[in-house]
Amino acid sequence: MFAYTTPLIGGLLIGLSAVALLLFLGRIAGISGIVWGAVSGQPDNAWRWLFVVGLLAGPLLYHTVAAVPHPTASALPWWQAVLGGLLVGFGTKLGSGCTSGHGVCGIGRLSPRSLVATITFMATGIGTVYIIRHILGGV
């Protein structure tokens, strides 16, 4: 299959999910916000937990039904998972959003704030991979 087909189909499904959540629940599909809301015990929380359960179940359903193997496990060491996770959590909470909230939904709302955030995290993400792979010689 054309290499861009599955990313495009996946992207469209993500967009549809964000549209359905806003249309039916009046909520923005920002994953970092939903996850933080769930674990920090916001009032009226059941929908957040159910969304998170769905987020976890969706890929298992897809890989099973479509008989597509799981992606190869990351070869990166555990400490890189710790460092990456800490920074992702800290940054998304401080900046009030991630790829979904600022990227998919914020740009969809034509929010300048979200556009600036998206450009910023794309730039530092690209810069970080550049430094790790091409200056430090990592993978």
Binding site: P7, L13, G15, L16, G54, L55, L56
Partner: peptide, 13 residues
Amino acid sequence: CGILFGIGLAVSG
């Protein structure tokens, strides 16, 4: 919505 989002993430790579 969560399931749909999760499938989208897995399908997309």
